[in-house]
Design a protein around this nucleic acid. Structure first.
Length: 110
DNA sequence: CGATTGACGTACG
DNA sequence: TCGTACGCCAATC
């Protein structure tokens, strides 16, 4: 367990199961900072600089929109990765978002 | 070193 | 119900 907010974000993101997605707010809320969703996004941006492979494609905004797809390359690689995991993505929007939603505050909290 | 921005979300008018 | 303001913390200008 790390006390750094950023590091905790990375830990949670790496724990996201394949074929599931979560939101910045859900992670922020899990870290006891519901309004710190922006920091989660920032962490994802910085994650590209990390050696660890952070599945940032599984992290989207609260409505299931792939807001950060532009950071995955020129094409819609982010949407493609999600589709490969069995997630339905239409026009950068995850279909049945609630169905694929993975809430750390529920899945990890005991 | 001070001000602004940023892969968001909640609160308030 | 819709629109605007603020908070979160670090990085960048």
């Amino acid at each position: 367990m790390q006390e750094n907010f950023f590091h905790q974000v990375y830990e949670v993101v790496k724990l996201i199961p394949k074929g599931r997605v979560t939101s910045y707010g859900a992670i922020a809320k899990y870290l006891s900072s519901p309004k710190a969703a922006r920091m989660v996004g920032w962490a994802m941006n910085n994650s590209h600089n990390l050696e660890d492979n952070i599945p940032a494609q599984r992290v989207v905004n609260r409505i299931g929109l792939l807001t950060g797809k532009a950071f995955f390359g020129k094409g819609n690689e982010m949407a493609m990765l999600l589709k490969k995991e069995g997630i339905e993505v239409k026009d950068d929007q995850i279909m049945n978002f609630e169905k694929y939603f993975w809430d750390p505050s529920i899945e990890l909290a005991l």
